[in-house]
Design a protein around this nucleic acid. Structure first.
Lengths: 310, 310
DNA sequence: ATAATTAATGCTCCTGTTGAGCATAATGAG
DNA sequence: CTCATTATGCTCAACAGGAGCATTAATTAT
């Protein structure tokens, strides 16, 4: 085993951010260049830690505080298109949650629903019809387009495990695996120069859609055991608003009464005393998060009625 | 928002590996320099991806295949002691699981039980007595040694949430949080030059014990929903051996019958037909993992009787 | 041999959690 | 006033998980 390291080849560090907010029951992600890129930039070395560098960078650019920051993944693949000439680029991506969207306007930094990039991930109104109509048929072709029987079997199994049959067995956490499968099958424009019949969903440049998929997957997995959605909500909200928020992230509908039962069983929120009557029906009580409990749950775990992985 | 990146300051990339194996019911980790360092080295740029670079590097050094590799975390903190002069070091750490230990002998690459570094994490024979005897009393001093009452309350709460009362409420996943708490409280030698009365547990150089804590925490969290322990087992094993393996990782005892129920309910293993009589009692059937199911569960999830987080 | 000890295995019980759905309450719209 | 709509309370059945009893099949001690 080699002794402790000397130096290695010089590389450049690039930061990528998946910034998430919730507006109008849609999970929004901050994009640049007409939706083709995630915000990214060089790592400013004046900051003591990566995390603080990311936070400062994002906050300076968006004028909004970042509620939550988490490292996603570090890529250093040679085939990254972003490499400049000979220099190797290491890209470190982060997931950030913020409470409100910044300046609206369709100008360049633009919030877009992540379901524009991954329309098949939205099962809030039931199984996404795209899957049965467009994705599965094309994947099926790819699944049999290999000489080796073992390889064919493996492809079938991957299709089955990630997309199910289009109606049952949907696991909302497998966002990245599904994107990677589509990529390998050559069904997304990023995969190769000319894709005959791409699956619906807006592409991004470089590997940014893959990074976005990583972020969505991480967030979907996270909300099941850490109350991070708290970072995305306004100070006061109704339980239905909270439910819609979680549903937007998870891309699945939830049972209303059970959702409420779990939320208050865990004591995550407390009524403010006020109530709203924004909509038609009976006015809803307003709630706020209980800071102590949220902090505690950040370690101890939360639960959501989202447990149908099988 | 800045447009897509230009280059940034040059930095050096260093890889760190937490390599785990199981021997004699102990979770072993590969160390160098008399246990003071984790294996680390410069990133060899000839590999197309980071992952393949790590795999090749480790396999070349240990002559053993790496069953499973997972990225842990990327550090780029300025205060990293490993920085050489002005050059910034970015260290990317990986968790790797391997099936067997390499060349024994107490020579330099040496496997050591991770509980030598974190003795308080071993609750396999009940609550670790270190906590009540040594850790909690010292933490208590730190907990009240701050002028600000709010800060004191927060410290108390962190102690309570990570270490509990030393008997109940133990959450085995909080390895990193506990180490960080001890570090902040100045109870580990890494924290500062002279620690009056350090908590038991062998220190490491640089931030390697922190990286190890990250790896253990990740692995403990992982075994609860992905059957990764499969990478650590020999081809054939008894159910008790499997249980001891999981207990070694989780640092907790498990109910024997329930463990067996869960394992076979999930169909993770199948009997080989043979049986052993290594020990005194009734001979145990030998099992092997069912590859198809293990692969499937790698996506769909596993369960273990380890659900007492509260 | 026989008894005691040690493991492996099979089963039962009890409890808490979770998915679903019924029923009732409180508003605004027509 | 009636209906549509949303909020909220409650019940039920199925299931999963924690604990422990009982039985079986070996080895070791007397």
């Amino acid at each position: 085993m080699t002794p402790p390291p000397a130096t290695s080849d010089a590389v450049a560090i690039e930061l990528n951010a998946v910034l998430v907010a919730l507006t109008a029951d849609q999970p929004q992600v901050l994009t640049l260049d007409d939706g083709a890129l995630l915000p990214s930039g060089p790592f400013a070395t004046e900051y003591p830690t990566l995390q603080s560098g990311v936070r400062a960078w994002v906050e300076r650019q968006t004028n909004h505080p970042l509620g939550y920051v988490e490292q996603l993944y570090t890529f250093a693949d040679r085939n990254r298109p972003a490499s400049h000439g000979r220099q190797r680029v290491v890209s470190i991506s982060y997931l950030g949650l913020t409470r409100e969207r910044l300046s609206a306007g369709a100008r360049d930094p633009e919030w877009r629903s992540w379901y524009r990039y991954f329309p098949w991930e939205d099962w809030r109104t039931g199984p996404s019809p795209l899957i049965a109509q467009s994705i599965l048929p094309q994947l099926a072709k790819w699944g049999v387009a290999d000489g080796d029987p073992a390889s064919r079997r493996e492809r079938q199994q991957r299709i089955e495990m990630t997309f199910g049959d289009g109606l049952e067995n949907w696991n909302e956490d497998l966002v990245l695996q599904r994107y990677e499968l589509l990529y390998e099958a050559g069904l997304v424009p990023e995969a190769k120069a000319r894709v005959t019949d791409p699956v619906p969903g807006m592409p991004m440049r470089h590997d940014h859609r893959r990074i976005l998929a990583t972020g969505i997957a991480r967030l979907r997995a996270k909300i099941k055991y850490r109350p991070v959605f708290f970072e995305l909500m306004p100070p006061e909200f109704t339980l239905l608003q909270l439910q819609r928020a979680v549903e937007a992230l998870a891309g699945r509908p939830m049972h209303k009464q059970n959702f409420r039962r779990l939320i208050d069983l865990q004591g995550l929120v407390e009524p403010t005393g006020a109530s709203t009557s924004e909509a038609r029906g009976r006015p809803a009580k307003l709630f706020r998060f209980r800071r102590e409990v949220v902090l505690e749950r950040a370690l101890a775990g939360t639960k959501l009625p989202l447990s149908r992985p099988n």
